[in-house]
Design a protein around this nucleic acid. Sequence first.
DNA 1: ATAGATACATTGCATAACTATGTATTATGT
DNA 2: ACATAATACATAGTTATGCAATGTATCTAT
Lengths: 123, 123
Amino acid sequence: MHNYVLCYRFASMNEEFIRKWKSQVKKGTLSFIVLNILKGKELYGYELIEAVKNKTSIEIAEGTLYPLLNRLKKENLVTSKWVEQESGIPRKYYVLTQEGINTIDQMKKYWETLEQSIKRISS
Amino acid sequence: MHNYVLCYRFASMNEEFIRKWKSQVKKGTLSFIVLNILKGKELYGYELIEAVKNKTSIEIAEGTLYPLLNRLKKENLVTSKWVEQESGIPRKYYVLTQEGINTIDQMKKYWETLEQSIKRISS
DNA sequence: ATAGATACATTGCATAACTATGTATTATGT
DNA sequence: ACATAATACATAGTTATGCAATGTATCTAT
């Protein structure tokens, strides 16, 4: 009985660590992912959550995305425009700026170096 | 004159964004990197800073590494042992635990999925 | 002797993901 | 008709972690 309890505790500790780790990995990668998705086409916030999930299996909360989009806007990497709908709530579409495009290029360079380094040491 | 000043400001804003972004990318990747380096052999703290720099070009501050190693220790992913030197300050060597090895495997699976997703959307 | 490298460690700040919560509209099921 | 879920925006507070700054102590080279 004691053993079962202990096993459960160790297992959940590890899952907890992995859960927190995945959350930390998102810091930084998420802005890179969102900018890359916006490179293809203009999307609105709620749609972006679905797009990120479909393209990367990463599930993000609304409380994560909206502040992120506001930061990107503040940094002049994206702009936004309200678009009225025939029915329903208006949508705020996000558009990459030229500075945003330049920034993605710099991010990509760093990411590729990092990715290859990690591939070397983790194989 | 004004133009020069403006250009400089825009450039530095972007560099500042990239600098902060790189720092964010480290959150999460760094623990994965350190664990992977320790998989090969036991290292002490100061040596790890050099190893990370050599293998990934990532420069980390001591104020980053030592708290990180303490967290990994607290999570039972590594243990440490003091090793006296013939001359000089004793070194604290870090050793992967079995739980640490298991955790790396789980991290690796997540990382590879993420890496491939990002490769798809960023190319 | 003084500077710099080696080797450990902690404190406080900034950043960003996440949970919880809030508002408002539309669609769906019973 | 009414409740529930989905759509669509947003913010406040909590938590985790990188980093600059600072501190202690030893060894080496000039």
